[in-house]
Design a binder for these strands. Sequence first.
DNA 1: GCCAACGTTGGC
DNA 2: GCCAACGTTGGC
Length: 161
Amino acid sequence: MSVMARRYWLMKSEPGVFSIADLERAKGQTTGWEGVRNYQARNFLRAAQVGDGVLFWHSGTAQPGAAGTAVVARAAYPDPTQFDPRSEYHDPAATEAEPRWVALDLRFESAFPRVVTLDELRGAEGLAEMIVLRRGNRLSVTPVSPGEWRIVLRLARRAPR
DNA sequence: GCCAACGTTGGC
DNA sequence: GCCAACGTTGGC
């Protein structure tokens, strides 16, 4: 019997809306990751397994970057907001029988002592392929390689340059 | 099926 | 606030 290797992801959130500190304070330190409305990002959410590691990314802020880590606590399930006419994420084309969008649950794992900034990551060795660093990247959910994961966590433990 | 218009994301 | 990138929409 083979066990699927732990995989890693990066998920973006605007800290003014929901930050790593909000996740740490949340009930059960868990939240539903809802509202993803991009097919490529959705497909990544579908591929995520319980136990996978997540880099919690702060975007839309003066210091965008990796702010902490989380763990996938529940694999993809139909995003309830797609069925809710009052939700900003409502999708009239989605039905309970044929849902279009998925959510998953994240559990808090760690808040970095400081945000590892985009700038710092751009200058780091071994991250040339990291999707979030690519020009024009807008995907809110992207895969992260084990090597990238290791490098970012190592930088997080280091004092800022 | 093409592609222009439009809307959104997100760094700067 | 600007604007590049890029996904989506809809006319044809």
